[in-house]
Nucleic acid binder design. Structure first.
Lengths: 316, 316
DNA sequence: TATAATAGTGACAAAGCTTGTCATAATCGC
DNA sequence: GCGATTATGACAAGCTTTGTCACTATTATA
């Protein structure tokens, strides 16, 4: 094997193993230790952040700042990737320690000139917008870390005007229209709850608490684990075309809209009784784009709410 | 310079120039043409898609499927980039021809084992959600291309139930909560308008139309170019804490909310008179989280709308 | 049609680089 | 102290790389 190729493979190998000894690599590549030593020095000169320690249990390490091997991207892929990470700049907080802008500028900088030109021309013409929020969510990394390592986190959570201490075991975190949410098992309520991260004012691991075994609960299925002995009511509503689209945008789970040929549609399905307040408020906002048929409780609430709003604006 | 380093630099150089001759590179690197030929052959074996043509004006080319040079990403950066492109999967349509999943799997595949493990563990625990829409927006590439190259596009646009033919010159495209929008100069209305891409049922370049010179209008500033001789009215409203947050999410431009210490706030600013319908509908949806003081026209509309909704649900 | 520009191949020797071996040092944990 | 480990230097054998030259082939263009 030529030296050039050996260096490339060496690069990948040291990135794969994080820790290794010279002898080990020498055996693996079928060359002498001296050669590997020389190669490693060269890799270091090229930019791979190697670190070594002598003595037993010593050896080489690749530092946290690691170099990924050359990845072949087509131009299209590179552009797509660029704009994907470009979209991240709308987020005030991210669960990653790094600033994504670093990766972005690297990506941009190393691209051949004409791809860069293409990106420049597109930069102000494509965007993925997320509402920029003022709310800060500074505890994302703790929550994510807690979810990944299944730890119990003690949070100070603000709800209904007051702040309470809770122990939670996070399932994960997700961003939706600019806000971060954290579904978690709440030890206070003995059940899964959805927390808004901007209302979490403190978060830290609680080393004394014993985590539950919830390894297979994740963002994709946590809602199935809400073991709620809930009462459900049947919801039925007629939707205009606009109404159908609002369904898609604003109702993430719960009943999906049925669509007719002409774009209009209807909602039908069971919803938790405790959510009727939510639905009433929501449907009032949709105005004439929805007509609620069932349940009467939602209709009642809507009427009451309409009256309350009307009371705000007395006739002159 | 050692051969290994020369090969690396050669890789970057041929990616930068798209077209080049052997002689050219030989001069640049200070080696003989024969050496460059040998090097290029080796690059080809490694995987760089080179293509050559003999004769005058011939030379080497790197094919469209291009290999980007080795980029040094830190682990954190790689992870952030992964999740950024992971988020793209929520979009039914993208303006790029490529499937972003290709780039994603490459990225994933080439990462060292432990980073891959880390990603695996995080995969179901972090997400950037955008509402998945049923609406298809199949003409994104044409619109984007039209924006980049400043061409006039003929579209069939559906609005208010009917479909009309229009000539537009796109400014760009952007995605917001799952829907694609296209601000453009509309030749029919002689002014800038915002189009929803899922309502554009056909789009193609109009070669006969003469584009305007709008090169410096882009997504960042097109709203300033709406040269509307509009009447403005003064809007003033009180917001609860919830109301402030809805402002941030739903009012992208127009007056920004002012926030008090306790989280509540108020809206104050001039808004186009023709938007009072929009605001009335919006504020009705916000219910008790907003109290509109001015203008009377908005309040009037809200009242009327409340009555209309109430009429839907007659007292039994 | 001739010419110049271009890629591509083979051969060869000189120069240069790479490699293994050996010797030696230094550090560290046990 | 011993063994494992990195680290460095020297050196010669062997291998690789490089430049040169000679040649072929293709193609646009003058």
């Amino acid at each position: 094997m030529s030296k050039s190729k050996r260096l490339l493979e060496l690069m990948m190998t040291v990135n794969r193993k994080r820790k290794f000894t010279v002898k080990e690599l020498a055996r693996e590549f079928g060359v002498s230790s001296r050669t590997i030593l020389r190669d490693l020095q060269e890799l270091g000169e090229i930019g791979v952040p190697l670190y070594s320690e002598v003595g037993p249990h010593g050896g080489y390490q690749v530092l946290n700042e690691r170099v990924l091997p050359p990845i072949a991207f087509t131009e299209e892929e590179a552009v797509a990737l660029f704009f994907a990470s470009h979209a991240l700049r709308h987020y005030a907080d991210l669960p990653f320690e790094t600033e994504s802008s670093a990766a972005l500028s690297k990506f941009y900088h190393y691209m051949p000139g004409d791809v860069r030109d293409r990106i420049d021309r597109m930069k102000n013409r494509v965007d993925f917008i997320a509402p920029t929020r003022l709310q800060k969510s500074p505890h994302l990394s703790v929550l994510l870390d807690g979810a990944v390592r299944q730890r119990v986190v003690r949070i100070a959570y603000e709800s209904g005007g007051s702040t309470s201490d809770r122990l939670i075991q996070p399932v994960g975190i997700f961003a939706n229209s600019g806000l971060w949410y954290c579904p978690a098992y709440c030890f206070l309520r003995s059940g899964y709850r959805l927390f808004r991260c901007d209302r979490i004012h403190a978060a830290e691991f609680d080393p004394s608490a014993v985590p539950l075994n919830l390894g297979d609960v994740d963002l994709g299925n946590w809602e199935d684990h809400r073991d709620e002995p809930l009462k459900y009511v049947y919801l039925r509503a007629e939707l205009t075309r606009e109404g159908v689209q609002r369904c898609e945008a604003e109702l993430w789970h719960s009943p999906k809209a049925h669509v007719r040929e002409d774009g209009s549609g209807w909602l039908a399905g069971h919803v938790p009784e405790r959510d009727i307040g939510f639905f009433a408020k929501l449907f009032v906002g949709w105005g004439l784009d929805v007509t609620v048929h069932e349940p009467p409780a939602v209709v009642e609430r809507m009427k009451r709410q309409l009256d309350e709003i009307k009371a705000r604006y007395p006739d002159t």
